[in-house]
Design a protein around this nucleic acid. Structure first.
Lengths: 126, 126, 126, 126
DNA sequence: GTGGTCTAGACCACA
DNA sequence: GTGGTCTAGACCACG
């Protein structure tokens, strides 16, 4: 059994990220029902309490909406989804830049490198 | 004991990356002696053969020079180190862009996002 | 049981030479499948790891191409094979000349001796 | 214990070649005394009878001269040594050319390759 | 001591 | 089946 989760970051938080990404990729669409807490717990092999906490977290961010007796659903509020999308983008970029700095690359190198990469057609989109 | 290595990529290869990064960051300078095969094996908790293979790999890339009976040393050929630096930069960028695409971000978004991030002073260098 | 391998040179390297020669002689043609790692290990009576290393070495030289789950194949890139042919020729000549020097023969003697040998029809080709 | 002898050729004959080479290289000079049969047998780790046969062979070629009660000596007849030198040269060349043919090299390639090698200064004599 | 080679045997990933 | 990785442990060559 392969574990889905890395080291430092709390699992519930990693799971939240994972769900956010699924929404971004369109694997989960606005209005879609998430797996039940128990179902999800089995799928990703964690404790149901952890899934519960993830859902609560997502609900706090208004990305997800729990309806008692029915389940948990992706919000249909596109604004919030867009905000999440923007936030996640910044997170990713931040993490990337931080990593590059740690390896000794300067800002200009990074920006220029990215520009070159995209223009060389190596970064053609799927 | 925390393991230093991730899942899919071969350990010898991850270790090579690790050493490359140490060179980039200046933690290892041209001419420096690497830990002996056995020493490194203890440090990173893998079999000496695996370290041996890493060193061999790095020697193939001319990043490192092994002298029997003496040790393994970072090359003093700065050109090769620069080439390695450039290659690694492209690798990182490629991986980053790929990840962003997988999450549904478009090239322009990525480029603009990076520019904003760097200009907002959030990406100030260490 | 006679061993196929000489003394000082590593076995994996001798085996690589052997395969190169088979390619040169046309016993192995571009696109041909080599014996599997295990098969070859039995044939030449060495450990599969040693054969693996040989194949890996040859792959590094781009003389051979390994496809996981399928086998290892002689490259169809004739340029590389020609380069290998030239390299090996120089190696053989170098070794021959070195040996002759060690026995006290001078360059002119060697060159003249070869010319005589070939012209006397003693060196008629197969 | 590494064996000094290769496969097909008879040992007494290989030992004769070995001694011839020592004479060519000047390790054994005209008039020098060879080790006694028993001494040589110990040195090269073969049966004294085999050494005996080698010495007889060399004596037949007049390269060596046995004096009862004194030992075996390198001939002082330079003509014979020169003849031997020439014969051995041809042997070596013959063997070399044969090997090259076996690997698919043509006569012109061999001759040209040798010329290039010697002219490139790679074959500078010791 | 150092790096380098080799074996035995296990397990993984791909197909 | 295929190639590829890893470990454990031995032994060699160089200095």
């Amino acid at each position: 059994m392969t574990d889905l989760f890395q080291s430092t970051k709390p699992i519930y938080s990693q799971l939240a990220d994972r769900i956010n990404r699924q929404i971004l990729r369109g694997e989960l669409k606005p209005g879609d029902k998430l797996p039940s807490v128990r179902e999800m717990a089995l799928q990703v092999n964690v404790n149901p309490n952890t899934v519960q906490r993830t859902y609560r977290e997502l609900e706090g961010m208004e990305i997800v909406e729990s309806r008692r007796g029915q389940g948990t659903f992706v919000t249909e509020n596109e604004e919030i989804l867009n905000a999440m999308r923007e936030r996640l983008k910044k997170d990713e970029i931040s993490q990337f830049v931080e990593g590059m700095h740690a390896m000794g690359y300067k800002n200009e190198e990074i920006e220029e490198g990215l520009r070159n990469f995209l223009n060389d057609g190596k970064g053609d989109q799927a």
